[in-house]
Design a protein around this nucleic acid. Structure first.
Lengths: 331, 331
DNA sequence: TATAAAGGATAAAGCGCTTAACCTTATGAG
DNA sequence: CTCATAAGGTTAAGCGCTTTATCCTTTATA
C-alpha cells in the first residue's frame, strides 16, 4: 500500500507520535527533529490518510451539497462557486441532485452521514423538514442557501425573494404594463417572489392575472414547463402584455412560446426572468431579469458553513442578500 | 456519538464479530441470531461508519469526477447522468472543476487520493498525463470519459469525435455550403472534430477556411469566445456561408454575433454545433448539432468504473460511442 | 460408543492515525 | 549540590470496523 505514518517514523527514526505532532503542529518538538521529519515526509511523498484521522475525530474536509438539479444553470453556477470557495479552504464537496423529491433528500442525507461529511449545505426544497431537524438534533452542521428559513433554527444565506418579486413588478409597471402573466412553480422561493410581485401590483391598484396558478408538474424540464405555461396565457383573449417568469429557464420557455405565436419581444410581450444565470446572455434577445448575487451567495454560504463547523459562528445567523434588476432586451 | 457496532452487539447479546458478519452477509450465522441482530440494528437505527470499514480495506463508495467546468451544459448534463447512475449503485461522487488547468487537475487528484476515493472518472483535459500515469502505477482505478485515449492504457468511453466532425461537414456540404468557418478550441476533442471535418471537406475537393485557427485564450466564457471567433469570420470579405462550432456554447456565441451583424440564420449563415446539450433547445432558433449520447455515456462510464473497481473488467476496454446529426433550425 | 466433521459464535489483531500520560535529560533556582 | 521545572520525546490506548484463528457444541459416521 501507500506510505503510512509508520514508514515516516521509521525513516526519521522517531515515534509515530512525533510525526503526528509535526503534521498537526501540536505539542513540543525541537526545530531539528521537525526539520528531519518534514524532510522525510517530503522524500517519501507521504500523505496522511484522511480516513484514519477522521476516525479519530478530525474533520473529513468534505461537505455535502444537496441541490435540486445541476442541469439548472442557477444551481450549476451556485455549485461552481461553492466548490471553488470550498476548495480554497481545502474542502471537497459531494453534490447530490434531489429533483425536489423528499425521498432522495432523505436518502442522500443518510448516505452522507455514514460518510461523516463535516456538514451539509442544503439548497433543495425540504418541504418536509424532519430530516433536517434530525441533523440539527444530532448537532451535525447544516446551513441553508437560496431558500427561506424554516421554523426551526438553521444558519443560512438567502436572497430576499419578496423584494425581488417587487422589483420585477415595479420594473414592468413603470413601463406601463397593467396586465401581467406570472409563471411560477410551487416552491418556497417562487411563492415569495409571487407574493412580492402581487403585493406591488396591489399597491398600484392592479390585480394579478386571473388565470394565474402555481405549476405543480415536475416531470418536465423547466423550459418546457415555461413554454406550456406561456401558451396558456397567450391563447386567452385577455392576453397579457408582459410575463414575469420566476426563473430564467421558465423565461426562456416563455420566449419560445411567444415566438411560436408570432409575437415580438419586447414590443408585443415583455418578459422578465429571475436569477441572472449565464443563460440570460445565451438566449436571444438577452433576458431582462432579477439578479441574484450567485457568486457572493456561494462564497458566503461556505464561509458560514465552515464557521458553524469550527464553532466560530454561534447563535443563529441569517444572511439576506438583495436582488437587483438587470435590464436587457426583453422589456 | 452515534450508535456503533458495539452498541448493537451488546443489545443483541452477541459479539461484534457476529454483527459484522450479518452486515456483510459473510460467514455462517444461524437464522435465529441473524434475525435478532437485524432487529436490533433496526431498532437502534444503526448505520455502519464508512470511515471505519474503509480503513479496514473496504470501499469508500465514493468516486472522484474531474471535469473542466460544471457551468458548461455538456459537463453539467454528463455529471448529472454520472451522479444518477452512481447513486443507483450506492456510490457518491465528488465533482471537481479544473478549468483545464493542470495545476488544479494535479491538486484534486492528490486531495481525492488522501480521501481514498475508490476511483477516478476523468473528463478534464489532462494534456499532461503524468498524474494519470501515477494513478495507474499505484493501481488506483481510473477511467476516462468524453476524451480520446492517451498513449498508455486506460479504460474509458468516448465519442468518435472524428466521425462527428465528418457528419457536420457532410451535412453542410450536402446543403451546398462550400465556404465554411470553423470555431474550435485547442483541445483534443476539438482537434479531432476539426480533423474529421477537414478530411471530409478534402474528400469533396474543398478546403478549410483560410482564416481558421484554434482558439487558445481560456479566460473567457465559451459563449464570448464563440462570439468573438464568429466576428472574426464575419468581418472578412470572404465571409463564409456556414459555421461549424465545436460545441453548442460556441455555436450560441456565433449565433449572437451573426444576429448583431444583421444576418439571418439559416438563410445568410448556417450554423452547426456539437454536443446536443439542452442549450440547443433553449436558444432561438433551435440549434442543429452533432449529438453525443450524453446519458448513455454517463451510464457506461460508471458501469465501467465499477467494473474496474471490483475487478470484473480486465484488460483494456475502450467503448466508442457514435454521434448522430440532430437537424434543427440553424441549417 | 468413539470420533470426525460441521455449525455457530468469539477473541484478538490490526487498519493509520491522535492524544493523554508518562519518561528522560538538561536547566536553573535556592 | 539538591530539587523542581521545562523541554523533547515515547508509550500505549483507542476510534469503529473486518477478519482470521480458535473454541465450543452438535450432529453424522464408522
Amino acid at each position: 500500500m501507500s506510505v503510512t505514518i509508520y514508514d515516516v517514523a521509521k525513516a526519521a527514526d522517531v515515534s509515530i507520535a512525533t510525526v503526528s505532532k509535526v503534521i498537526n503542529k501540536k505539542g513540543r518538538i525541537s526545530d531539528l527533529t521537525r526539520e528531519r521529519v518534514l524532510k522525510v515526509m517530503e522524500e517519501l511523498d507521504y500523505r496522511p490518510s484522511v480516513l484514519a484521522s477522521a476516525l479519530m475525530g478530525k474533520n473529513t474536509n468534505t461537505l455535502g451539497l444537496l441541490i435540486p438539479d445541476i442541469i439548472n444553470p442557477f444551481f450549476a453556477e451556485l455549485s461552481r462557486h461553492i466548490e471553488d470557495r470550498a476548495n480554497e479552504l481545502e474542502y471537497n464537496v459531494i453534490i447530490c441532485n434531489t429533483d425536489y423529491q423528499q425521498e432522495k433528500e432523505k436518502n442522500y442525507i443518510q448516505l452522507l452521514k455514514q460518510k461523516s461529511v463535516d456538514g451539509f449545505i442544503l439548497a433543495s426544497g425540504f418541504e418536509d423538514p424532519t430530516e433536517v431537524e434530525r441533523l440539527i438534533e444530532e448537532e451535525i452542521p447544516v446551513v441553508i442557501v437560496a431558500r427561506e428559513f424554516p421554523l426551526f433554527s438553521v444558519n443560512g444565506v438567502a436572497l430576499n425573494d419578496y423584494i425581488g418579486g417587487q422589483m420585477a413588478a415595479k420594473h414592468l409597471v413603470d413601463r406601463g404594463h397593467q396586465n401581467i402573466g406570472i409563471i411560477a412553480r410551487d416552491l418556497w422561493s417562487n411563492r415569495e417572489r409571487v407574493r412580492g410581485f402581487c403585493d406591488y401590483l396591489q399597491s398600484q391598484g392592479l390585480e394579478k392575472h386571473p388565470e394565474f396558478e402555481f405549476i405543480r408538474d415536475d416531470n418536465l424540464t423547466h423550459i418546457i414547463t415555461g413554454k406550456k405555461a406561456a401558451e396558456h396565457y397567450l391563447t386567452k383573449n385577455s392576453r397579457p402584455s408582459a410575463i414575469f417568469a420566476c426563473n430564467d429557464l421558465l423565461a426562456a420557455g416563455a420566449i419560445q412560446a411567444t415566438r411560436l405565436h408570432g409575437l415580438r419581444i419586447p414590443e408585443d410581450i415583455a418578459i422578465v426572468g429571475f436569477d441572472d444565470t449565464t443563460l440570460t446572455r445565451m438566449i436571444d434577445p438577452p433576458l431582462t431579469t432579477v439578479a441574484q448575487p450567485i457568486e457572493q451567495m456561494g462564497n458566503e454560504i461556505v464561509d458560514l458553513m465552515l464557521g458553524v463547523i469550527d464553532g466560530s459562528v454561534k447563535g443563529e445567523k441569517h444572511i439576506t442578500l438583495m436582488p437587483s434588476m438587470k435590464v436587457r432586451e426583453t422589456t
